[in-house]
């Protein structure tokens, strides 16, 4: 287990370094932020001053090594736009995204497992067909379109929930509902498929022959074994949500890390982009680790 953890950490560290190098140079290729932040008629002196303050007057390689040096002291640089440490802005946004992702994934997992298992138990039945069709529709729907249609219906016409912003619990309903749809569709299909093959295995037949009732067979015997492939997909989907549900966050004016990243790219706020990417990459690394550990818990045959 320990050597496995070490290997995983090294592999992730290598990809993180690659990522940082890539993003550092790519983002700086998008142009000089000076023109964005200073008025058009700013004097040459003011421009030079701005560049010097933010370290943009140095050659690119010098900037890079300076950044890496700061990074080793856990200094992620200053945000140009907000004049605060980049990591503060990112952690604030990430907290929002984490809550959003956690609520959504908890709902998705519970619903998908419940409905998927029931659908698998009556393969080809009416409930199964209905669930399959709706999961397909859900997996095919563009989230931005669902989001704006939902706003028109539930906020503008019916006035049930606020259109955008943050505040009480009612502000969470639409973003969670929109984010729910696609992962739900995908995970439901995997649960169903995996459940179907598990339910046809010999030990389920044994349980049935013993005269057990259906519910304990599905949810106690079969579910645990059917969960392995499901967990992989749950991990992928959760990673996608952690990466920032960019579109949904920007439609609902949700101050998460995805919106922060997009804004920072458009505003050329380089240190925020990099900090955001490192924080989410680290979170995803932790989550993948958790999933690997879950594998071993669910299936004692798996040893690392």
């Amino acid at each position: 287990m320990k050597s496995f953890l070490g290997k995983r950490a090294i592999a992730s560290a290598i990809s993180l370094v690659g990522l940082v190098i890539l993003v550092f140079f790519l983002s700086r290729l998008t142009g000089d932020p000076t023109d964005l932040y200073l008025p058009v008629d700013a004097s040459q002196e003011a421009r030079d001053n701005f560049r010097r303050i933010h370290g943009l007057d140095q050659p690119l390689m010098v900037q890079f090594f300076q950044y890496v040096g700061d990074l080793l002291r856990f200094d992620f640089g200053e945000s140009i736009r907000r004049s605060e440490p980049a990591i503060d802005a990112v952690l604030r946004g990430f907290t929002w995204t984490l809550q959003l992702a956690a609520i959504t994934m908890a709902l998705v997992t519970a619903m998908a497992i419940l409905i998927g298992s029931l659908a698998a138990f009556h393969v080809g039945g009416f409930f199964d067909r209905l669930a399959t069709f709706f999961s397909l529709v859900g997996a095919s729907a563009p989230d931005f379109w669902i989001a704006i249609v939902a706003i028109v219906i539930f906020s503008v016409n019916l006035g049930w929930v606020p259109t955008s912003g943050t505040g009480g619990w009612e502000f969470w309903i639409l973003p969670v509902a929109v984010l729910f749809i696609r992962p739900f569709g995908l995970i439901l299909q995997v649960v169903r498929g995996s459940m179907i093959s598990t339910l046809s295995s010999a030990y389920v037949k044994t349980a049935r022959a013993k005269g057990l009732r259906n519910r304990p067979i599905i949810f106690v015997h079969a579910l645990r074994n059917a969960m392995l492939p499901v967990i992989t997909v749950i991990g992928d989907q959760a990673a996608a949500l952690l990466n920032g549900a960019v579109v949904v966050e920007s439609i609902f004016g949700f101050p998460g890390v995805g919106k922060l990243m997009i804004d920072s790219i458009l505003q050329r706020d380089f240190s925020v982009i990099l900090a955001a990417i490192m924080v989410t990459a680290f979170a995803i690394f932790l989550m993948n680790l958790l999933i690997d550990i879950l594998y071993a818990v669910l299936d004692p045959r798996i040893r690392y």
């Binding site: 990809s15 920032g244 990417i277």
Partner: peptide
């Protein structure tokens, strides 16, 4: 495989945004 890992660990939409902005 390491190259694939780098691409996989990157939020694809954001990669697209950066490159398209460039």
């Amino acid at each position: 495989m390491r190259l694939a890992d780098v691409i996989m660990s990157f939020p694809s939409l954001l990669l697209a945004v950066i490159v398209l902005y460039m």
